[in-house]
Design a protein around this nucleic acid. Structure first.
Lengths: 213, 213
DNA sequence: TAGATTGTTAATCGATTAACAATC
DNA sequence: TAGATTGTTAATCGATTAACAATC
């Protein structure tokens, strides 16, 4: 067990949720133990990579046996910070904001929706899963009073930077950014971008450059 | 000009949309030319990387001058396959499907929504931006008759694999997959995954492991 | 104990950065 | 022409894979 000697690369972090997903499936199938070899065949990655990745965080396996599925699942969940819950709010209550607000799987993982916000007066007062949509002018106070950890940003890109500043000033520590801009936040504030149009363009590239002559 | 001597890495492809975005902004600002150095400062990447990335696709610049913004913008758009339009359909007309269907920026880029589908009878006949929601049993015929290029998959993960098979059999060449499973498709069919919960877990990791002691 | 499989070191591969000759 | 900046080769860095000794 070493836990965080040096910074772990985002490449490794990015693979953890996928490990968790496959281990969850194995758990559901009632599989008790699995070797890196077996897992590598399922996931179509190398066994070497699995062992390397896991050993960044400590030795979770046992020679001659492999990994205990239940235990490894719990450990990866813990590493990912899923062993406790987060309070989150959604800023921008348009179609995408509402869709995310209605997504119950986040709740199951410990991400608890505490508020929804918009600038548009006609949306104020509407409810999403029992959560009232508030005006964004209430943001700073709300964040402080409700111990909000994560702000989901689903506003038009023109507004995103200004709102991000407000969020940072109000003490938000993480932004899940769906706006199509790069946010500039101080160190210590985490930003995770979901740039849907970038993703679609990658698909477009791969269509154009695949074997259709 | 070489254009595709050997496979270009997804790391490079993944950066192209961001280049396009910054060049679009420069264009809007009325900037006519830019050097890799200036662009690198804006984008916070190395000038070397910009030149390397671009030169995978040909020499778009001019020594002593830099790059013509308008020209480079057009070239990257072309490389990404944005110089022509695509027909797409959305399968799964829940909150997320509707949100994506309503997103007009895709349309502006040449991605044209042609159909929406669901299994739920109560949704059939509803309209999203003038597009009627159809039953998924109509999928195969619809895909063939309307020359659909891209299927957006926003169905629960339990259904995703089965529907993906139908799509592939119907001749779809690209799937934008929002379902939380890895699809197994034959070579030649492009899949681009958007795993929102994976993204949220990465954020969760980074919150848990940032400098908050 | 013998066999299996990890944890970890070493080798390889690929991607990023630096350097500079080519050239506008 | 001189200065600027690309395109490209070479050097470095980091990530992935292979190998194997440790050990359950």
């Amino acid at each position: 067990m070493q836990e965080q000697d040096k910074e772990i690369s985002q490449a490794v972090i990015g693979r953890l949720p996928r490990y968790l997903r496959y281990l969850g499936e194995l758990k559901d199938e009632g599989v008790e133990r699995i070797s890196s070899q077996e897992l590598s065949e399922r996931m179509k990655v190398t066994a070497s990579q699995i062992r390397q990745d896991l050993n960044h965080f400590g030795g979770f396996g046992q020679q001659g046996y492999g990994y205990n599925v239940e235990f490894l699942y719990a450990e990866i969940a813990r590493i990912l910070g899923l062993d406790h819950s987060y309070h989150y709010i959604i800023i921008g209550s348009g179609n995408l904001g509402k869709a995310l607000g209605n997504y119950l799987n986040f709740e199951r993982r410990g991400f608890l929706l505490k508020g929804m916000f918009d600038r548009n007066e006609s949306l104020i007062g509407e409810e999403v899963r029992g959560i009232k949509i508030r005006h964004i002018r209430e943001l700073p106070e709300f964040i402080r009073e409700n111990k909000i950890d994560i702000a989901v940003l689903t506003v038009p890109k023109e507004e995103a930077k200004a709102i991000a500043s407000v969020l940072v000033e109000s003490g938000i520590k993480a932004i899940w950014n769906f706006a199509h801009v790069d946010l500039n936040v101080p160190a210590g504030v985490q930003v995770e971008n979901v740039h849907l149009s970038d993703s679609l363009m990658k698909l477009s590239y791969n269509i154009s450059n695949s074997a259709n002559p």
